[in-house]
Design a protein around this nucleic acid. Structure first.
Length: 424
RNA sequence: GGAGAGUUGGCUGAGUGGUCGAUAGCGGCGGUCUUGAAAACCGUUGAGGGUCACACCUCCGGGGGUUCGAAUCCCUCACUCUCCGCCA
């Protein structure tokens, strides 16, 4: 959520930036927010004055009673009745205006960073880096779903029976490969200075609201209605919420956390080749990195997170490219996002395996993550996160790119975690 | 699941209707003393709204109520702890 004072003080700038995000009715919404805010402050003032009068009267009544001046006290009591009625009316209007502002604010996306270019969607994202050779596969090369059944490592049909589409069962070396990747990612994160946490896989409503999954992305999550919990779509939710309502110590910057978790996404509306095999699952594994930093250093931190992700892909010997998302494709809450995509050689397509973002103060404002600056003033922190990495598409690319006639070659860096060097 | 007890500022912990936004201790910050440090002493130290700045308003787990007035009384929800039951 954007800070009201920023909207108030930089109206034109805010509107202009919002347009890059293709936010419709930017002027109208911002104007409305400012008008309502002016109303709010005026009402607040009136209501405060009303309360002040009541407080004064209450004190007077108290001392009158002590002095035994009953009648005078009773008289004053009458006065408070009108004030109370007045205040009630004002209070109701005030909370109505307040709610309207809140609703409007929640509908406004984050302002994109200066480097974010306008664009309609995916097609306008800018490739900023390319790494690795694209493997040339033979005619006999298979897409990963066929490799999965050929070597009996991932069973999609079994998952269909037990749960439904998008819940595969990993078997034998498939299961071990998963476990190895998780350990590899966690161990690399540890080396980069991320403190490992194991968060809950279900969160309450407040947490889902704070990181922005609610109210607008409710359809994306599985809901445990009996207890009013939400299955996490990413570890970002519980891990970022660790810091909700906290004033953190700036000495601890950058605060770095990593977490392995399973992620649950309903993915309503997806279909076709996008969901084939491991391309899009309802339950998948991911290691997430989360950082909290000061506004001065958050972009350095973003760069260091990107370096970390790039290092993982290099060690896995996968060709990848980095995209700077354009205004039309960047997420609602993000100021700047880089996507990492690996090339899946048999499918001959790029698959997104990581998304690294700086949310600046947008998330922190809702979460109330603050720190004290050098003047000891309370300020909002910047929050950042990234996948490091999401497993299924990595597995897909590993299987396809590293397939040989003898079997699937395991990259060297991973072998100490798998305990084998080939799947055959 | 049953019975009971709790939830107060970074932490510990007072406060049961009237200057209580809250005693005290610890911690933090600043200072005195010291070659330096520790100890001791002095001062300072919650958040949000509002204001040019003050004033002022709100906040004692969340929400609602009683009252002229609530951290204090009532209702409700959440959470924590203890005992019992069940169980990985």
């Amino acid at each position: 959520m954007l800070q009201l004072n920023i909207i108030r003080d930089n109206k034109e700038f805010v509107i202009e930036r919002l347009k890059i995000k293709n936010f419709k009715n930017a002027e109208q919404t911002i104007e409305e927010i400012i008008t309502l805010d002016n109303q709010r402050r005026e009402m607040q003032k009136q209501s405060d004055e009303c309360k002040q009068k009541q407080n004064i009267l209450a004190k007077q009544i108290g001392s009158l009673f002590k002095e035994g001046k009953r009648e005078e006290a009773e008289q004053k009591k009458q006065e408070t009745a009108t004030l109370k009625a007045q205040e009630k009316e004002l209070g109701e209007k005030l909370s109505e205006v307040d709610n309207n502002i809140k609703t409007l604010l929640l509908s406004v996306p984050n302002l994109p960073h200066q480097s974010v270019k306008p664009g309609k969607g995916e097609e306008d994202n800018e490739v900023v880096e390319m790494h690795g050779e694209i493997p040339q596969l033979t005619d006999k090369a298979l897409p990963h779903w066929d490799l999965c059944s050929k070597y009996d490592i991932i069973d999609f049909n079994l998952g269909n029976k037990i749960t439904g589409a998008g819940f595969p069962v990993y078997k034998g070396k498939g299961a071990k490969l998963q476990r190895a990747l998780i350990n590899f990612f966690l161990s690399e994160a540890d080396k980069s200075g991320y403190l490992e946490v194991q968060p809950p896989l279900m969160v309450n409503e407040q947490s889902a609201l704070a990181t922005g999954q609610l109210p607008d992305k409710e359809a994306q999550m599985y809901v445990v209605t009996l207890d009013n919990f939400y299955m996490i779509p990413t570890a970002e939710v519980p891990v970022t919420n660790i810091f909700r309502d906290c004033i953190v110590d700036k000495k601890d910057f950058p605060i770095k956390r990593c977490a392995y978790s399973q992620c649950f996404r309903r993915e309503a509306g997806s279909y076709g080749k996008d969901v084939r095999g491991l391309n899009r699952l309802h339950q998948f594994d991911k290691v997430e990195i989360v950082c909290i930093d000061s506004p001065e250093h958050s972009y350095e931190q973003l760069q260091s997170m990107m370096n970390h992700v790039a290092g993982l892909l290099e060690k896995l010997e996968l060709p990848y490219r980095v995209l700077r998302l354009c205004g039309g494709d960047i997420s609602f809450t993000s100021a700047l996002t880089f996507d990492f995509e690996v090339y899946s050689a048999a499918q001959q397509r790029w698959l997104e395996v990581s998304s690294v973002s700086n949310f600046e103060t947008y998330q922190a404002n809702r979460l109330k993550v603050r720190y004290k600056d050098d003047n000891n003033k309370t300020q909002l922190c910047h929050t950042l996160n990234g996948s490091a990495l999401a497993l299924p598409r990595i597995v897909a690319a590993l299987l396809e790119n590293h397939q040989t006639e003898e079997g699937i070659r395991i990259p060297k860096a991973l072998q100490q975690f798998t305990g084998f060097d080939i799947i055959n």
